[in-house]
Design a protein around this nucleic acid. Structure first.
Length: 274
DNA sequence: GGACGATCAATCTCATCTAT
DNA sequence: ATAGATGAGATTGATCGTCC
């Protein structure tokens, strides 16, 4: 990878389903050597979508880990093969019911999803997050450390400017993505975890606590963000269970026995395929 | 530059669970 | 029995990108 040209890097991106990034990488002339030298901040500036950032950083990290013991392949296809092998090994490890069992439900969309109704970007981000969760879930501690925000957010925070709508969304998006690393594939943080994160945010940036009720507003925004991520999910045991439990509205009757049985069968299928 | 559609946070309402 | 917490679906409104 170290010797790759910009074109080789771009073809590697396409192979890794990151074709959307090709134009930016060409503009910034990111060669193989440059790719390996990217730090978190550069990746954040270079790549707009969090999901893509996560995948890219993960791939680079894996490549570096691989090359510590192995000689680096000289072309993108070989490198991709090394990474696929690594990913497959991780899949085998994490799919073992003994090692993870019910804590690791399948994150991949079922075949019968109605494409038009599903936010593909959320699903894509979820797959990325799952992949990271499989790599290694981080240990949650009460002294939660805020993630490295992108440059524009850091500027806003440094200037203590009240964030506008889009900036609030970006902060929440980053916090949600960061929290997910600690959740072992779950999309249900505990109340304590929400509290820890919002407390860390407001302690670091007290000006975000507008008129004294900032804590509740940020916490609610964070919870809603997780809710939004869960919404299109139809293949996660925990999400399906809660949708069965809570997912009916006024005017709708509770699910019939047959419907409940169908959901139970679906859960079993998910467990078996996980 | 205006119309339009897509996205997504915010909000509302309701169902369920749990502690008292 | 009841209040509070939590999670769901539905709706609304702001924002952003695209098209003509």
């Amino acid at each position: 990878m170290e010797t790759w040209s910009v074109e080789q890097v771009c073809s590697w991106l396409v192979e890794k389903n990151l074709g959307e990034l090709v134009q930016r990488f060409q503009e910034e002339e990111v060669s193989g050597a440059a790719l390996l030298a990217l730090n978190d901040r550069m990746v954040q500036q270079l790549v707009k979508k969090i999901g893509h950032q996560a995948v890219l950083m993960d791939l680079i990290k894996k490549y570096k880990q691989n090359t510590q013991g192995l000689k680096s392949p000289e072309n993108p296809k070989e490198a991709a093969l090394v990474m696929q092998t690594e990913a497959a090994r991780e899949d085998e490890e994490t799919s073992s019911p003994v090692s993870h069992g019910e804590q690791m439900p399948s994150f991949y969309p079922s075949e019968n999803l109605e494409d038009g109704l599903i936010d593909q970007r959320v699903l894509k981000q979820r797959r990325n997050v799952k992949h990271l969760a499989r790599s290694k879930a981080l240990q949650w501690t009460k002294s939660y450390v805020l993630p490295e925000f992108p440059y524009d957010v850091k500027c806003m925070l440094a200037e203590q400017k009240c964030p506008d709508h889009s900036m609030r969304i970006r902060i929440i998006e980053f916090l949600q993505a960061d929290m997910t690393k600690y959740l072992e594939g779950s999309l249900y943080p505990s109340t304590q975890q929400y509290n820890d994160v919002v407390n860390a945010l407001l302690q670091a940036h007290p000006f975000l606590d507008e008129d004294g009720c900032g804590f509740f507003l940020w916490k609610r925004a964070l919870k809603d963000r997780f809710k939004y991520v869960r919404r299109p999910i139809e293949d996660d045991e925990q999400v399906i269970r809660n949708k069965c439990k809570f997912g009916h509205r006024k005017g709708q009757t509770r699910k019939s026995i047959a419907d409940i049985r169908f959901d139970e069968i679906k859960l079993v299928q998910i467990k078996l395929s996980a």
